[in-house]
Nucleic acid binder design. Sequence first.
DNA 1: TTTTAAAATAGGATTTTCCCTGTTTATTGA
DNA 2: TCAATAAACAGGGAAAATCCTATTTTAAAA
Lengths: 218, 218
Amino acid sequence: MHNDSQKHTVVIVDDHLLFAGSLEKLINSFPNFRVLFHAKNGLDLQHKLKSEKTLPEILLLDINMPVMDGFETAQWMVENHPSIKILALSMEDDERAILKMLRTGVKGYLLKDIHPENLKLALREVIEKGYYHSEKVAETLLNSLNPTEPQVQLNLKENELTFLQLACSEMTYKEIAEIMNLSPKTIDGYRQDLFNRLNIKNRVGLVMFALKNELIHI
Amino acid sequence: MHNDSQKHTVVIVDDHLLFAGSLEKLINSFPNFRVLFHAKNGLDLQHKLKSEKTLPEILLLDINMPVMDGFETAQWMVENHPSIKILALSMEDDERAILKMLRTGVKGYLLKDIHPENLKLALREVIEKGYYHSEKVAETLLNSLNPTEPQVQLNLKENELTFLQLACSEMTYKEIAEIMNLSPKTIDGYRQDLFNRLNIKNRVGLVMFALKNELIHI
DNA sequence: TTTTAAAATAGGATTTTCCCTGTTTATTGA
DNA sequence: TCAATAAACAGGGAAAATCCTATTTTAAAA
C-alpha cells in the first residue's frame, strides 16, 4: 500500500459531474494515483489551478465541454503549465479532433469506451514514458499520413465564407451586399466564383454545400 | 456496514466502458447498493439477464447507445421485466427524449452532469418511493403541458413533400415539374402555397424548412 | 515608384423566381 | 346528377438570380 504523498496526482476536467465523480473514485482505487480535484471546464480549471497549492502531474481532459472546451483548455495548459501531462478524453473517435489535440501537445488520447483497466495503464504509461497512445490513435495517425480521400480543400476567404453563410438565409443578394458593405455586383462576383469553383448551379447548391461542409448549422 | 446480501442491486447499461466502470465503483461505494454487472447495450443486456441468475432491482440505462439504444431497451425491459425499475441516464437534457422515456415507463431520468451525491439520492428514492424526478424533469413535464411553441403541424400532401424535397436540389422548377409530370404552373402553385403557409420568402427558405423538419438529410 | 495581381465594381442580357388573379379539370358527397 | 371543393393549370408582370465581358480600385511585390 502507498500513502498519499507517494501517489501520482491527477486532476479531472469534465462538465459531467457524475462522470467526473465516478472517475475520481475509480482513479483513487488505483494504488498509485489519486485525484486532487476536478473542474467543470477550462475556465474553472484556471481558477482552481491558481487557488490550489499543489499542481497535478496529469490532467484528464474531456474535449466536449461548454464554456471553454478541451481544445482551448489544452492550448492554455501547454502555454501556462507545460509540465503537466494532458490525457484527452473523448466520446467520439473523431479523426480531426484526435489530430488537433495531438498537435497541441497532449500526451494521450482516450475514448470513453475504453476498459477501466486501460485507464490505469494509460496513467502509468504517461508517468513512465511520458505518453500513451491507444491503438485507435496510432491508426488515426497512419490514416492521416495516408489520406484516403484528399478532401477538397476549401480555401474560402473570410468574405466568401460570410457571403456563403448569408446566402443560406432568406435575404436577397442585394440585402446581403448591404450587410457586408459591398456593391451588389461584388456579391454577384462572389457567387459566380463559388459556382465555378464548387461546380454549383444555383443558390440551393450553395446552401447544400454550406451544410455539407458544416459552414452553417441548422 | 451492510453485507452484500442486504444491498440493493443495480445493473448498468452503457457503451462507454470507462464510464460504466467508474460508475460501478461509485455505486459500490454507496453503503446500500451494489452493482451486479454491466452491459454494453440493450442486446448485451438481454443476454446477460438470461445467463445471470440474479435480477437487479434497478437498471441504470444510458440512452445514447449504438446497436440497441436506450429507448428500445427501455421498451423491452418494460415488457419483459416490468418489476425492474429503470433510471435513464443521458448526456443531453433533450426535452423530447425525456418525455419519450417517461412515457415508456422509466422511473427516473438523470443527466450525466448531476452530482454523484444526487445519484445516491436517486437510487434511494427509486427504491423507497418507486420513482425519482429531478428538477429538470419536473420542469420539462410542465413545459410539455404548456407548450410555448405550438409546433406548426405540417400537413404535407404527398406531392407537396416530393416537391419540397426536389426543391432542395439544383433543379429549376421547370425541371421539377417535368420529373413530377406536372405543369410548371402547378409547381408554381405548390411553391406559393408553401410560402404562404410556412411564412417563407424564397427557395432557400424551403430548403431550410425541409432540413429543420428532417424532410431531407444532408 | 512602377508593376502586378487580386478584389471590387459595372453594364447589360437572359433566365428563373416570385406573385397575383384567374380558369379549367377532376373528385366527392348530397 | 348536381353542387361544392380541391387540384391542376394559365397569363402576365415585376423582382431576383444567373452569366457574360469588361473596367476601376486596392494592395502587395519588385
